[in-house]
Nucleic acid binder design. Structure first.
Lengths: 360, 360
DNA sequence: ATGAAAGCGCTAACAT
DNA sequence: ATGTTAGCGCTTTCAT
């Protein structure tokens, strides 16, 4: 492959600025980085020269020397999911504000791919990593230990987890999934539902487990049985929610509500219910999780748990910056953002629904 | 801010590999890059040493020296729009396959921000730029000329446009927006609609203009008047579609169909129509553009023009790779992907609708 | 207060 | 066939 940069082209470097200003390159560097006092006259000359030549420091050279690249990397399972783009926007904005660029990687929910990328990043002198991990905290302890070392113990590259809380000793921004899920279940119970089915996010991820635990807790607290035959596990996708609901319907297990691990699966489940001529919410109440806009478009509109996605992105970047400043000293910090129930017509026929027409 | 890399840590460099293998660093470099013949015995030793030390070349140093970074940058107006994530996924996959990383930037439809980012990229030695531009080809000719120079004339950084065709002499992947829009209008006309309103994407962008031109062409061809009082311009967002339709309704202009510049605005318009107790499609047919999944969730489901989003991303990366190999010689290449009409219940009550439950 | 110079880790032209 | 070496553009220590 040909070199893109034409050999005749001369990109303006720090040398050119130095020459034009009639000073040494170190003086230029110091002026531009404000890293040492330089007499105001020279300073002026340097700034003017840099300006006239449209000088832009070469990031690679700078990174090579300084060990910093002003770049954060985010790893998300999926970029087409409606959840992550909002988080990414929050990150993007917060990062830009602090002068960092954001590189986005998609892991496709593959831990192998996630590890590969992280492995690469170790040597790319990225300044920080934002990670929505696809690991299973129960079985992938060694991997988490690696990350703990990378981030805090060895003080190499700070890593902040988001969306899922992977466990002890790791910085993380999340919501209290268990509590929020318990609240959602409690709401269903309080509105008279007794046979509450559950369509779960993948249980190999902490999020799936935590949300399920919340459901169990609420059922127990109400003295209700969480029958295993009313439990099906999906994979986050609308399609999987549809299929879980089909299975549930075919099992002829009775149920008067279904709580889902996310909105996408809830929408799939809703579709299956409507096709089976069930009345929602009269026969079956449907509840999602995350509060993504598609839930407002379907009919009946989806009740759900609101998760502050953009704030989560912002908070994750802020935690990263804090960790960098804090000098990598334990303990780890876990930021838990607030959730709130959003009740629409899929659980309460008296609500009236509005389509969410903002930000998509 | 503290350096992230602990000073005591010694990251393994090419030197360590050379030492361990008992060869010179240039031999290591040549083995690893396969850039010169090296005896099989030494080759083995080098590869083994690199493996044992988990050596990963430092991308910054490599980029500094070689002028290449194995990185492409994409600029999109919005990352939360449902359109772009699919394109990004196509790019991501194609780039990864060729060993390139993808950095994503959001311009927020601000040309100023777009220029800033491009300006930065010039000095960051990215290997290629993928650009969904927010410029107005009519008034921003100078900017496009700059990009033409950057990409083809000066052979510095190849730039491939996507989604919008910015004009002559620039590589681009798009669809024939004008033709597709004309087809959509023709379909409405053929199904008996006569007073067809138009809610436009912003006319300062080529896409908005092209789609509107297609509508005009079809109206003319059918001998119908495209009344200015039936034209409203939105900003892509669902909200703006809603507001345009409100305005149209309040204007008491009669109409029996509305063609929209994208699905989002069509969905907003649909909402306004339903709130005004109009029957869709009986009183008014509604047609979108792009075929994004939300159009299948609303009721009635949205007729639209299908745009191959993921393929567009893939094709854009392929065009970039081709441009790099081709040695930057004109002429520019424009790749136009196929579209197709997707008829659902918002224009034809006899259709039956399925929710799109895939990939979100 | 300013400048000279040593590298950061790597590639590639040039020696051997 | 393998090694030596000169930078890429920058930051930063050390000298002046």
């Amino acid at each position: 492959m040909k070199k893109c940069l034409h050999p005749l082209e001369h990109t303006v470097s720090i040398k050119d600025v130095a020459q034009r200003a009639g000073v040494s390159i170190s003086t230029v560097s110091h002026v531009l980085n404000d890293t040492k006092y330089v007499g105001s006259e020279l300073k002026m000359r340097v700034l003017q020269a840099a300006d006239e030549l449209h000088y832009q420091a070469n990031t690679l050279a700078r990174g090579l020397k300084s060990g910093r690249t002003n770049t954060f990397c985010v790893l998300v399972p999926s970029i087409v999911s409606v959840f992550f783009p909002k988080v990414l926007r929050g990150m993007q904005m917060a990062a830009a504000q602090s002068g960092y660029a954001l590189t986005i990687y998609e892991t496709g929910e593959s831990l192998e791919r996630e590890r590969e990328i992280i492995q690469q990043l170790r040597w790319q002198r990225v300044d920080g990593i934002l990670l929505s991990t696809s690991c299973n905290p129960e079985t992938d302890g060694a991997y988490l230990e690696e990350l703990r070392n990378l981030s805090i113990n060895d003080k190499r590259i700070p890593v902040v987890f988001f969306e899922v809380a992977p466990g002890e000793g790791l910085d993380c921004v999340t919501v209290d999934n268990s509590r929020a899920s318990a609240e959602a279940a409690a709401y269903l119970i309080n509105s008279g539902r007794r046979e509450i089915a559950y369509i779960s996010a993948p249980m190999r991820f902490a999020m799936g487990k935590n949300r399920y635990e919340g459901y169990l807790k609420a059922m127990q607290a109400a003295g209700l049985e969480a029958k295993p035959s009313r439990y099906w596990e999906g994979d986050y996708s609308p399609k999987s929610g549809y299929e879980c609901m089909r299975s549930l319907l075919e099992s002829s297990e009775s149920f008067d509500a279904v709580l889902c691990g996310n909105d996408q699966m809830a929408i799939g489940a809703l579709r299956a219910l409507l096709e089976a001529k069930k009345r929602v919410p009269e026969d079956v109440a449907v509840m999602g999780f995350d509060n993504n806009f598609p839930g407002t478009l379907v009919s009946p509109a989806l009740s759900t748990v609101s998760v502050p996605k953009q704030s989560m992105g912002k908070a994750a970047v802020e935690l990263l910056l804090w960790r960098m400043q804090s000098g990598f000293e334990p303990p780890a910090r876990v930021v838990a953002l607030d959730t709130k129930l959003v009740i629409r017509t899929s659980t309460d026929a008296n609500q009236k629904s509005e389509w969410d027409l903002n930000d998509w």
